[in-house]
Design a protein around this nucleic acid. Structure first.
Length: 466
RNA sequence: UCCUCAGUAGCUCAAUGGUAGAGCAUCCGGCUGUUAACCGGAGGGUUGUAGGUUCGAGUCCUACCUGAGGAGCCA
C-alpha cells in the first residue's frame, strides 16, 4: 500500500478507490455515536488536513481511536473514497489506524485546538509548527527561498557561499558578535593588559558576518553576476517587530551595472517572489488573507501588476515637506528619513513599493558610489507598505581614489581593506548590489506582523531559547 | 538603549480597596456522517517576584523580572 502525502490525495492525483496509507498528526477528533469517528490528519504537505473516517468495528476503536486527540501521531491505511459529508471532496475510509505516538498529557499539551496568541506560541517554538499559522509560514518561507534560487539561476547568477566568520569589525553595519575560543575566565593579556587575540583561534579577532557584500564583490568582479543567501548576524540591541539578531539575507551583486539596473533587479526579484508564492502556495495565502491580513493576497497582486514608484531622496524630502501630515521629526535635506517618513511615502503617498535613491553621502556608508556633484551617493532603499525598508543597496564606488578619500572622510582605517581596494586596482568596473531581508519579505507576503513569527527559532536580545 | 502598555486557571480574558470568575481547552456523560460540532457535568489558582501602605491588596506605592507596541539602528 503506497504511502502518500496528504497534498497528493487532496490534489486529486490519486484515484478514488485506491488503497493508500498516510502518516501525520491528529488535529481534531469528532465522534459519532452511530459508531464512527472522524479524524483530521495533517502531515504538513499542504495547508489542509485530510478527513479519516474510523468505523467502530476497527479492532482498536474503543481502546485507542476514541482516545486520540490533538497532536497524536498516526499511520492510517484505507481506501480513498468520495466524501459523504460536506467540506471535503475525498476522505479515507480507514481499515487500520496505528498509533505511532501518544500525547503524554492532553491537559497541558500547549497546542490545544483553540486560538493562541503569537506571544504564547513563541514560548513553545518547538511545537508551534503544528499550528495552521506556523505550518503555512514554514511552507511560504520555503517557497520564497526556493524561488530566490530559481530566479537567480534562471538569470545567470551564481550562488556564492560567502563566509559566516569574518575578521573585519569595521564593515559599518552594526554591532558584531565575537567568535572566540579564548578562556574568558583566564583571558590572555598583551603588554598593555588588553585581551591578546593573537592567542585566539584565528590568531586575531573574529566575528560573525553582518553582510556578505564585501566578499561577494570579489566574486562579482570575476564572475559578473553573483549573489549570497545565508544567515546574517547583528548584535544590535534592537527590540522591534522588524529586527532579529540572526536573520537571512539575499545579496545580489552585478558587474557592469549602475543604480538603475540595480533597482530594476530588485523590482524583478520581488515581483518574481510574489508571483511565485501566489501561484505555488495559494492555499496558505488564502489562509493568511482570511485570518492574518485581509489584503495579503490583493496587495501582492497589486505589486506584481504595476511598476514600482521611483523617486530621489530630494524628491522624497520635498514630498514630505509638502505633506499635510504632521511628523514628530521635521524633514530636512541631509537628515536620514525616519520610520514615520518612510511609512508615509510608501503607505500614503504612493501606496505601493517605492524605490528612493541618491541619498546624502553623510548618512550612507563609504562603499556607495559618489554621485556627480559630490553631495549624494548612488544608494537605494525599497520601501514597502507595512514594513518599511525591505531592500537597501547601492552602486558601489569603483574608483580607487574616490574610495580612498571616502574611507578617510568616514574615519575608517584603510588597512584591513587592502583586498577590497585591490578589486579597484585590478580591472575595476561599475557594479551594484543590494540586500533583501528574507524575514521582512515573508512578513510582507504573509501579513505576519512580527519577524519573530516568520523564522523557526527567533534570536533576539535576551532570548536564544531552543 | 529610551518611551508607553501589560503580566490573574493549560490558553484568552473579567473582577468599585471587601468571599477570585467566564469562555475555550482537558476529562466524564448525552446527541449527531461529523467538520469553529452541539448539550450537561467535573477537575483546575502562592493573581510575575520582593518589599511597602491598609483592619483588609488581584486592585494603591517602590524596585526588579518577563513580554508586547513604538523610537533609534537597520534587512
Amino acid at each position: 500500500m503506497p504511502k502518500r502525502e496528504i497534498a497528493e490525495l487532496l490534489r486529486g492525483s490519486v484515484g478514488v478507490g485506491t488503497d493508500v496509507a498516510v502518516r501525520g498528526w491528529v488535529r481534531t477528533r469528532r465522534d459519532s455515536k452511530a459508531g464512527l469517528s472522524f479524524l483530521q490528519i495533517n502531515d504538513g504537505s499542504c495547508f489542509a488536513s485530510l478527513q479519516v473516517v474510523a468505523d467502530g468495528t476497527l479492532p482498536n476503536y474503543a481502546q485507542e481511536i476514541q482516545h486520540l486527540g490533538s497532536g497524536c501521531a498516526v499511520t492510517v491505511r484505507g481506501e480513498l473514497v468520495e466524501s459523504m459529508g460536506r467540506g471535503q471532496s475525498v476522505e479515507i475510509r480507514a481499515t487500520e489506524i496505528a498509533v505511532e505516538g501518544w500525547v503524554d498529557d492532553a491537559d497541558t499539551y500547549p497546542i490545544s485546538p483553540k486560538r493562541h496568541s503569537f506571544e504564547f506560541l513563541r514560548e513553545v517554538a518547538h511545537l508551534r509548527p503544528r499550528t495552521n499559522t506556523f505550518g503555512a509560514v514554514a511552507r511560504v518561507r520555503n517557497c520564497l527561498a526556493q524561488a530566490v534560487h530559481r530566479f537567480f539561476d534562471a538569470s545567470g547568477y551564481l550562488w556564492i557561499h560567502t563566509p559566516i566568520i569574518t575578521a573585519s569589525d569595521t564593515e559599518g553595519a552594526g554591532e558584531l558578535f565575537r567568535v572566540s575560543t579564548l578562556d574568558l575566565a583566564h583571558l590572555p593579556r598583551d603588554a598593555d593588559g588588553a585581551p591578546d587575540f593573537s592567542r585566539d583561534f584565528f590568531g586575531r579577532e573574529a566575528f560573525l558576518t553582518v553582510s556578505g557584500q564585501l566578499n561577494v564583490e570579489a566574486y562579482c568582479l570575476a564572475l559578473s553576476k553573483v549573489y549570497t543567501f545565508g544567515p546574517t548576524f547583528r548584535a544590535e540591541n534592537s527590540n522591534t517587530s522588524r529586527h532579529l539578531a540572526e536573520f537571512w539575507m539575499i545579496e545580489p551583486e552585478t558587474a557592469f551595472a549602475d543604480l538603475s539596473d540595480n533597482a530594476d533587479l530588485a523590482e524583478a526579484l520581488l515581483k518574481h517572489l510574489f508571483r511565485t508564492v501566489l501561484e505555488e502556495r495559494a492555499d496558505d495565502m488564502e489562509f493568511f488573507a482570511q485570518r492574518i491580513h485581509p489584503d495579503a493576497i490583493s496587495r501582492l497582486q497589486a505589486v506584481v501588476d504595476q511598476p514600482f514608484e521611483r523617486m530621489t531622496y530630494a524628491e522624497a524630502v520635498r514630498a514630505l515637506q509638502d505633506a499635510k501630515k504632521k511628523f514628530a521629526f521635521e524633514v530636512s535635506w541631509g537628515a536620514d528619513l525616519q520610520s514615520e517618513h518612510e511609512r508615509y511615502l510608501t503607505e500614503e503617498y504612493v501606496r505601493r513599493p517605492v524605490v528612493v535613491t541618491n541619498y546624502p553621502k553623510g548618512i550612507k556608508p563609504f562603499y556607495m558610489r559618489l554621485d556627480d556633484g559630490g553631495e549624494t551617493v548612488a544608494a537605494m532603499d525599497v520601501l514597502a507598505p507595512g514594513i518599511g525598508e525591505i531592500v537597501g543597496g547601492s552602486q558601489r564606488e569603483e574608483r580607487l581614489d574616490v574610495l580612498d578619500s571616502r574611507l578617510v572622510e568616514c574615519g575608517i582605517d584603510p588597512a584591513p581593506y587592502g583586498w577590497y581596494r585591490d578589486l579597484r586596482r585590478y580591472g575595476t568596473v561599475p557594479h551594484a548590489g543590494f540586500g533583501l531581508g528574507l524575514e521582512r519579505t515573508i512578513s510582507y507576503v504573509s501579513g505576519m506582523a512580527n519577524v519573530r513569527d516568520v523564522i523557526p527559532f527567533p534570536r533576539t536580545p535576551g532570548s536564544a531559547d531552543f
